[in-house]
Amino acid sequence: MWNKKNLYTGISLILFIIFIYWADNNLDPYKMRILILCGIYVILALSLNLVNGFTGLFSLGTAGFMAVGAYTCALLTMSPEMKEMAFFLEPLIWPLNQIQIPFLPALIISGLVSAVIGFLIAFPVLRLKGDYLAIATLGFSEILRVVIINAQSITNGALGLKGIPKYTTVYWSWGLALLTIYLMVNLINSSYGRALRAIREDETAAQVMGINLFYHKITAFTISAFLAGIGGALQGNLIRTVDPTMYVFQLTFQILLIVVLGGIGSITGSVIAAVIITVLMEALRVVESPMTIGPLHIPGISGMRMVVFSLLLMVVILFYQQGFMGQREFSWDWLSRKGRDNEQTIGS
């Protein structure tokens, strides 16, 4: 049975890789871009779900960590000439103005810088719970943004960075998304994952069971910041420009929407919802752009997409709190309908 499942997973994986390869060769750049964004949002949603869903820490700092990742990766991958052109108000400090490194190490460093900042932020804020934690992480995200606006000689301030090399391909985004899914599934099914869920269920009981709350929370938070940094970096090197207005609370809101829609505490849900929301985000662009139907000219209505998304979030949370998946996960047993009777249901 176990081997059969591995076989199914292997076949699906190969089919998916074939699909990606086919897409890369046949889809137009616009559709490819959406596909790439889907992979990025999968990573971001899993990052947020790790803390919000599995550990029960309501964090709203994703946008801030994405900004850190995106700026770090942009500064590491842009050519010195591009940097000199971008920083015309105030030159970029040494040694950043000289450095240019390949994408992979830049990505890893972006994740690490974001993780370090996440770790430092976690120290004070993880003493807080519930709403307080939410507002404090949101606050940190805003502070990071204000710092980015003001640290002209590192971030180019409000002007942002332009001309970032477009390194993010579908292989990068989905390759890393699949790796993230794999690691997250393992982690969540491991003893550490159980400890995190125990903390979510009942902190006091978890602590009395010998779980060091602070250590586990801060590790989850740091991993989440790492992933958000990677996601931000991938996004920055896809759209080729970053500026402080991109990293407002609205960005965190979109990822929160994915997590809630998919099911708070479900990896499968996050993956499905990430794809749906990303596609929807692009599909609904239509309602925001000007349209001419026959003699009728409708000007573009900006904000309409967010109206739809906020309504969607409210409907889910008011009428369908479980989202798509609740806390359940996909398993091949669904196909054979044997789930409960199976010895290895949990963790397989």
Partner: peptide, 14 residues
């Protein structure tokens, strides 16, 4: 809390 965030964004964008 999530509902409140939803209302906030809804009003803002509406």
């Amino acid at each position: 809390l999530i509902s409140a965030i939803g209302v906030s964004f809804l009003i803002q964008n509406l």
